[in-house]
Design a binder for these strands. Sequence first.
DNA 1: CGGTTCATCGAAAAAATATTCAATGAACTA
DNA 2: TAGTTCATTGAATATTTTTTCGATGAACCG
Lengths: 191, 191
Amino acid sequence: METRKEQKERRRQEIIYAALELFVSKGYAATKVTDIAKRVNMSTGLLFHYFESKEKLYEELVRMGLEGTAYPAGQACEHAIDFFIQFTTQLFVYMQQQPVMAKMFVLMAEAQRNEGTPAHIREIAMQVNTIEQFVPIVEWGQREGTIRDGDPKVISNAFWCSIQGIAERYATNQEIDLPQAEWLVDIVRKK
Amino acid sequence: METRKEQKERRRQEIIYAALELFVSKGYAATKVTDIAKRVNMSTGLLFHYFESKEKLYEELVRMGLEGTAYPAGQACEHAIDFFIQFTTQLFVYMQQQPVMAKMFVLMAEAQRNEGTPAHIREIAMQVNTIEQFVPIVEWGQREGTIRDGDPKVISNAFWCSIQGIAERYATNQEIDLPQAEWLVDIVRKK
DNA sequence: CGGTTCATCGAAAAAATATTCAATGAACTA
DNA sequence: TAGTTCATTGAATATTTTTTCGATGAACCG
């Protein structure tokens, strides 16, 4: 049997998950708390027993996204380009195996980009700054000759935005398969 | 001097443009009609003299986006891959020269993807189906050997989502330059 | 010029949405 | 078992947002 505390925690998770799905598919502003409540089969009022407000619920999701973000570290790779391959492959595997992950990914990107995001939540989301993270790796690859020439920031940006564009679609519609990681890595690879 | 009719038309355009900017930066649902009115310095009430409702305004934008969409046609190119290069180059030039274009691009993508979009508007937006448009060109390139092997739809999707990811960022933040068209075309190019 | 149209505003009404609350009964605790 | 806690609901309230409306004066038209 499930203790009351456990049950409460489970219910909380259900809400969080439902909110994640809705925020990603319709956006935070367009999602009504009644939508969330409906999806987990509870009265709207009860949702406020679990979360102080719609905004707090959003904040919690973004915090979870921040916690769960793995920062890229390339030590294990011989070449910079291998790092990109590993990273992308890994990301795509996760996205396929754990749809939640893909959704969280998109939620964070949304929270960062969207100017409608409440300021304090946006700040939290902004702590994940992947483009910057990739810059030194691009520079390393350029010294090596495995990554194409050009402004490292622009290259890093091109790669990352592409990943995001793909994740964004995949998160809400798995009809079309994810591409091969190599295809995307070719954005940065030197020929 | 400006006739009254001209002035009205100009004002209408101002509203449309302000709405475009806001819908793209905050999303349709998060944008209040007062935000739009404020941006063009008019009372909220007056906005309804120009547009029947917020939703109709959105609809008009999406219709404009549909009208303005140029369908890709590859006849002029010798190889399929050249078509991708031309297309991407051209798109990026437009996006740089006419920020409105980049924004419209993002608006349409949003309207298509977002499940919160009013059904009849979504339908209009859906008429732009670029992924399908690219499939025959990918197939042509595969026969030729200029485009990599794999499911044409998956390839087309990868390319298109990448473009969109980049446009999405560029539309709201021009700090980072657009990448070289060739970098992106390397997603589909056969080595 | 005199009458009509219409862009404009600000305030009021309507509609949608978020949040609170009192009541209930089932689960827990002693 | 008796008393307490607390998950739950549905309805009431608060808040936000959209939309309507009457009044005003400036532009237009004959």
